[in-house]
Amino acid sequence: MKNQETHSTGYLTYAIVLIGLLALTTLSVAVTGIHLGAFTVALALLIASIKVAFVLAVFMHLRSENLFLKLAVAGVFVLFALVIIITFFDYLFR
């Protein structure tokens, strides 16, 4: 069976990612004070998405997984986005 070899990630990598995640959290809290109107939500979600991408890629080892799993994870997020968008076809045009 292929793909059975282990991909070991170093402790330092994890620590750096954690620092990055904490920095992004600080940023996220900081920008709440600035009034950007509707962009506040968009910005908060953008930062959250970057954080999630880091957790997925490094903590959850997705970067060393096979292509199928990467596509499946991406597909799940796209599918959920489509469900929200299509539901809003109703709420936005009512």
Partner: peptide, 17 residues
């Protein structure tokens, strides 16, 4: 997966939907 709204044609969903 994306046709669920056809159960709701008379429920008052938007015309576009």
């Amino acid at each position: 997966y994306f046709v669920w709204g056809h159960h709701m044609f008379t429920s008052g969903t938007s015309y576009f939907s």
